[in-house]
Design a protein around this nucleic acid. Structure first.
Lengths: 140, 140
DNA sequence: TATTTTTGTATCGCAAACGATATAATACAA
DNA sequence: TTGTATTATATCGTTTGCGATACAAAAATA
C-alpha cells in the first residue's frame, strides 16, 4: 500500500502548503484588519474598481455561498459597498469605500515581504506557479 | 502595482489548487463516507495502527482544536475508537475499528484514479511535490 | 514533599467553504 | 402574451480551521 502513504501523496503537501501560506499571511493582514479570503476580494477590487458578486465568484473560483457572507462582513467593516444594479436587479454591484481604496497603500509591501520569507529562487517560483496554474485549469 | 495582481501572486494558485484538489477527492471519498481531512486521519491510522491525538496533530500539522472534534465525528461513525491512555492519562489513544480497517481496501484506487485525472507527467508531479515540501519545511 | 512548569487534550467563538435549496428578475419560447 | 428556462444572489446546515483559553496529569524544580 505504498500509494496510501501520506508522504507519497501530492494532495497532502498541496493542502498543507496552502494552509501554511495562509498562516504566513495572517499576521501581515492583521495590520489591515482582514482575513486571507477578504484580501483576495480586495485584490480583485483594486484591479477592477466596480464589479459584481458574480464576477468575484468567477475570478476567485468560490461559490456565492462563500462570497456573499464574506462581502457582508466586509460591508459591515466599511471596506466595501454592495448595491443592487438598476439595469439588472439580479446583480449586486460591489465597490470599494474610501477606506478600502486607502488600504492598497499598506498592502503593497505584503507580497514582497512574503516572497522574501521563502528561500525560493525566481525560477522555482515560476515553476511552482506554472504547475499549480496548469493543475487548476485542468481540473476546474 | 503589478505585485498586487491576482495572477502574479503565488499564493492564489496555491490556495485555489488546494481547494480544487479537495473538490476532486470529494466524490471518491463520498463512497467511503468520509471528508478529505477525515481521509488524512485514516491515512495516518492505516500506517500506524495505534497512535495518539498528539501524533495525529503533528503528522497532519493541524491544531488540536481541529482534530479533536473531527475525531469525535469519526468515533460517532464508528470508524475509530478513542481511549485515555492508562500509562499517561493526558494522552488519548486512537485506533481503527474493524470498519475503519476495512475501508483501506476501497481506498486503494483513490490515489491512482486522481493521478490519472491530471495530465501530469511523473517528472512534473515530482517537481511539484519537491517544491511544495520545501515550502512547507521552510515555513513550518 | 510542596510548588511550579510543561504537556496533552478539550472547549469556545468566529470565519471560511460548500452542497442543497430557495427566490426574484430576466430571457426565451410557444 | 403567457408560460418556461435561465441567471444572479441569498440562505441554511454541516464540517473545517484556528486563535484563545481552560484544565488535569505528569515532569521538573525548589
Amino acid at each position: 500500500m505504498e500509494s496510501l502513504k501520506l508522504e507519497n501523496q501530492i494532495c497532502f503537501p498541496l493542502y498543507t502548503a496552502s494552509r501554511i501560506m495562509v498562516q504566513a499571511y495572517t499576521p501581515l493582514l492583521k495590520t489591515l484588519g482582514v482575513t486571507y479570503p477578504q484580501y483576495l476580494v480586495l485584490l480583485v477590487l483594486w484591479e477592477e474598481e466596480e464589479t459584481t458578486v458574480g464576477q468575484i465568484t468567477k475570478r476567485l473560483q468560490l461559490e456565492t455561498s462563500t462570497i456573499t457572507p464574506l462581502l457582508k462582513r466586509m460591508e459591515q467593516m466599511e471596506i466595501i459597498q454592495r448595491k443592487r444594479s438598476d439595469l439588472d436587479e439580479r446583480k449586486v454591484m460591489v465597490t470599494l469605500t474610501q477606506k478600502g481604496v486607502d488600504m492598497k497603500q499598506k498592502a503593497c509591501m505584503i507580497p514582497e515581504a512574503l516572497m522574501e520569507s521563502t528561500n525560493f529562487s525566481i525560477e522555482e517560483l515560476g515553476t511552482l506557479h506554472a504547475l499549480l496554474t496548469k493543475f487548476i485549469q485542468q481540473e476546474a
